[in-house]
């Protein structure tokens, strides 16, 4: 499970640190272990969603957030959602990992063998989805 690439992201996370302005902010926790992430999104005029985040937790949750940033920062909601859905299915062992969609995220495949850790791997991505949906509903309300 602890592939070199995961340890790299854990030790040198990409994109960590909150920025302003933002359209929506969410705070997700993994209540069984105390992993936490605060994630903000800002949607541009052409529908691209910029991410910033801050988090604490285990190597898997930290690495996964860093990989998420690499993969879906600045993409559309549809593209981000496709990646999240693919990650979920991969962790349920229902699809084989697609590097085009997940990038380094394919290294998280081994997490599927440890059900207790799946939540750690999903935390950041679920936070992104929640924030992106909140931001888009706010956009519609305007």
């Amino acid at each position: 499970m602890y592939q070199e690439i995961i340890l790299d992201h854990y030790k040198h996370p990409h994109g960590k640190g909150l920025t302003e302005p933002f359209d929506a902010e969410v705070h997700h926790v993994n209540p069984t272990c105390g992993d936490e992430i605060t994630l903000r999104v800002k949607t541009s005029a052409d529908g691209l969603i910029a991410i910033s985040y801050d988090n604490q937790g285990c190597s898997i949750s930290q690495a996964s957030a860093s990989i998420m940033f690499d993969q879906i920062n600045g993409v559309t909601f549809a593209a981000g959602e496709q990646a999240v859905d693919h990650l979920v299915l991969m962790l349920q062992r229902e699809v084989s990992p697609d590097e085009d969609i997940l990038g380094d995220g394919i290294a998280l495949e081994g997490v599927a063998q440890y059900p207790a850790r799946v939540k750690c791997a999903l935390l950041a991505w679920m936070a992104w989805k929640d924030a992106a949906i909140q931001a888009s509903s706010k956009g519609e309300a305007k």
Partner: peptide
Amino acid sequence: LHPHDVGQILDENGVAVRVGHHCAWPVC
């Protein structure tokens, strides 16, 4: 090192421990 990672390595060695806040979050 996060407790989850410590627990994972212990588990790989056959040592079953608990990691997390142990249902006593205010203590953490």
